[in-house]
Design a protein around this nucleic acid. Structure first.
Lengths: 236, 236
DNA sequence: GATGGCAATATTGTATACGATTTTCTGCAC
DNA sequence: GTGCAGAAAATCGTATACAATATTGCCATC
């Protein structure tokens, strides 16, 4: 075995149409090409991907289970527009689980895994220095990949899936409430965490992780804004 | 505010058909009326609930996202048959998140919440002394409700949903690999945890929770068995 | 009698059709 | 011009229909 990250489940390959659409939309949401609140009508989605409403609907349903889109009965699906309260819960959940994931990952980590993580870091750094939308989007993805890779290394596919959801939803939150232009969570902090793991200073690594998450959250301005409609603005 | 457990999201009421079916099947799985491996064909489910395959399919898809049923491409849906490895991961995840949830819950808990927990405990104890299938099923549910209520009290709806998944899947695991006739996880341990919370001995409460989970897991015989088909029995 | 392939059957994958609900537009009364 | 009622349009909720795939049974063949 070369790497603890080998766990990749085989999948039956040939995803069933709906899954492809789901993945495509999810990627668009995470990379912030789709803004929170954007309407995703079943017909439009179906036409866009040249499939029937049946599949479009299935994809949207799936995304709603992940909290990335919200479907309102008889009204349609929208890219999720997390409330400040939801945002707090998302980061609260991350503070709760990421140290634990880190500990498990550290227990199983191999030199190959560390090399992989450093590779990701390098890529992330490269993207940070570039300009342009596409670089920014790739950077967002790379930044999340660090956290996801740790979950992968931990070898627990359940926690891995959960982290995927949390990272994706975090992207939405940052899109809505992020202040600093530098959308990246502190890049250097990722490196520090790896170093701490490598030095086998587990407690310190966890502390760094907590600080890192706090750092991301501190960059948010969690106040109601960008009223999705006048409705929500006045009914609460 | 009377209780931190008030958070219950309002829901748009009138669940959309598919959700009702999903809930009904989930309950049947959690209460172990449906055994792991049982085939859930779309037509059968549809006929059973007097709806079209469309809704049956949607319900089954939803359950697959929760890990309670596994759908195999072009073959159908089956009540999930968690592997020993999956079982380990489920309990690993619980060990990882439940102490954290407990801590958050303890920080927000009100006297009303404690009363509610003790109420659950009482009910659980009553069911334990009863005989019969229905009592056993109610006991299973009550035992899980303790953990779910803690998540509810924590006020984090994301962790709450995650715990719902973990508890439900745990029920499947216990159904498959549980040894002791007493399907309940140590009932008294629940009481001890509440007491520790009440006494504000948070670290001890977490320790008790970890022991509690370990105790449940220790009652499992995690070896391959009851071959779902000949395939799985020989291909690994 | 065992084996391989073909037909029949059953089940899922996807598309289309129709009814229900919501939203939007229009026109009339005030 | 404002406001409300009703019609028209758009969109979702569900059912049905058809195509694709997998499973099963049968028969010819070796």
């Amino acid at each position: 075995m070369k790497s603890a990250a080998k766990a990749q489940q085989a999948e039956d390959s040939a995803e069933t149409g709906a899954q492809q659409i789901r993945d495509a939309i999810r990627e668009a949401i995470v990379e912030r090409r789709l803004s929170p609140g954007t309407k995703l009508s079943e017909s439009d989605v179906g036409n866009l991907f040249n499939v029937s409403r049946t599949l479009a609907r299935a994809a949207l349903q799936a995304l709603s289970y992940e909290g990335l889109v919200s479907v309102e009965k008889n009204r349609g699906a929208f890219v999720a527009y997390p409330s400040p309260e939801e945002a707090r819960q998302i980061f609260s959940a991350r503070r709760l689980v990421e140290p634990g994931i880190l500990r498990e990952a550290a227990a199983r980590i191999t030199p190959d895994d560390i090399a992989h993580l450093r590779q990701l870091l390098l890529e992330e750094g490269r993207l940070m220095s570039e300009r342009g939308q596409t670089a920014r989007r790739a950077e967002i993805k790379a930044s999340g990949d660090f956290h996801l890779t740790l979950a992968l290394i931990s070898g627990n596919s359940i926690m891995q899936r959960f982290m995927e959801e949390l990272v994706a939803r975090s992207s939405l939150v940052i899109a809505l409430y992020g202040q600093s232009t530098a959308s990246s969570c502190g890049h250097s902090e990722h490196g520090d965490i790896i170093s701490a793991i490598e030095a086998n200073e587990l407690d310190r690594a966890c502390q760094l992780m907590l600080h890192h998450i706090a750092h991301i959250e501190a960059d948010l301005d969690l106040r109601e804004r960008k009223s999705l409609g006048l409705k929500e603005a006045f009914e609460l």
